[in-house]
Computed example of a mutant assay.
Amino acid sequence: MLSLTEFCNWLADTSASHLFQEVLWIVPAAQSIHILAIAIAMSALLMIHLRSIGVLARDQTRSEIVDRFLPALWIALPVLLATGSVLIVAEPARSLRNPAFYWKMGLLLVGIVITLTYARPLRRDPSWWDETRRRQLASGIAVTSLILWVAIVFCGRWIAYVSPF
C-alpha cells in the first residue's frame, strides 16, 4: 500500500503531471476556468437561497427559481471537478497533503447533500416549502447552505496558505 507521500510522488512523476507543469498555460487556464465555475455555482446558489429567504424574486415560486438556476450548479460542478483534477495532477502534494483540501472536499459533500435535500421535494410538489412550518426550515437550510458554500470557497483558497502535513 502506497503512503500518501509516495502516491503524491508517483502522481508528480506521471507524464500528465509533467505535461501540466511544463506547458505554461495549462495551470493558469485551469485556475481561471475553476474560478469562473465557482462564480457560476455561487451565483446559482445565491439566487436560489436568497429567494428561499425571501430577499429576491418573491414574485416567482421557489420551484421556478430552482428550475432556472440549479442546472447552472450541476453544470459547474463537473467543470470544477475537471479543472480541480488538473490542478491536483499538476501539483499533487500541494492539495493531497493539505488539510484545507480535505475540509473543502468534506464540506463540498455536505453542501451537495443539503442542496439536493432542498431541491428534491420541489420536483414532487412545487409548493412543498410554502407551508408555514416548512418555510422557516427552508430559510434555515438556505442560510446554512450559503455559509457552507462560502466556507468551501474559503477552504479552496486556503489550500495555497496552509502547510501540508
Rank of each mutant, 00 (worst) to 15 (best):
residue 2 L to P: 13
residue 2 L to R: 12
residue 2 L to A: 12
residue 5 T to S: 10
residue 6 E to I: 12
residue 9 N to A: 14
residue 10 W to C: 06
residue 12 A to Q: 07
residue 14 T to W: 03
residue 17 S to T: 01
residue 20 F to H: 03
residue 21 Q to Y: 12
residue 25 W to F: 14
residue 25 W to D: 08
residue 28 P to Y: 07
residue 29 A to H: 00
residue 34 H to P: 04
residue 38 I to E: 01
residue 38 I to Y: 00
residue 38 I to L: 00
residue 42 M to H: 05
residue 43 S to I: 09
residue 45 L to F: 05
residue 48 I to C: 04
residue 48 I to V: 09
residue 54 G to M: 04
residue 54 G to W: 05
residue 55 V to S: 03
residue 55 V to C: 01
residue 57 A to Q: 06
residue 57 A to N: 10
residue 58 R to H: 14
residue 58 R to C: 10
residue 60 Q to W: 12
residue 62 R to K: 13
residue 63 S to W: 14
residue 67 D to E: 15
residue 67 D to L: 14
residue 68 R to P: 11
residue 72 A to K: 07
residue 73 L to F: 03
residue 74 W to E: 01
residue 75 I to F: 03
residue 80 L to K: 00
residue 80 L to V: 00
residue 82 A to K: 07
residue 82 A to Q: 00
residue 83 T to F: 01
residue 84 G to W: 02
residue 86 V to I: 14
residue 95 S to D: 02
residue 96 L to H: 03
residue 102 Y to M: 03
residue 104 K to V: 04
residue 105 M to F: 11
residue 105 M to R: 10
residue 109 L to A: 09
residue 112 I to R: 00
residue 112 I to P: 02
residue 117 T to A: 15
residue 118 Y to F: 14
residue 124 R to K: 12
residue 125 D to F: 13
residue 125 D to L: 14
residue 127 S to T: 15
residue 134 R to F: 07
residue 134 R to C: 08
residue 134 R to L: 12
residue 135 R to H: 13
residue 140 G to R: 06
residue 141 I to G: 05
residue 141 I to K: 05
residue 143 V to S: 06
residue 145 S to C: 14
residue 151 A to D: 05
residue 158 W to Q: 08
residue 165 F to R: 09
residue 165 F to E: 12
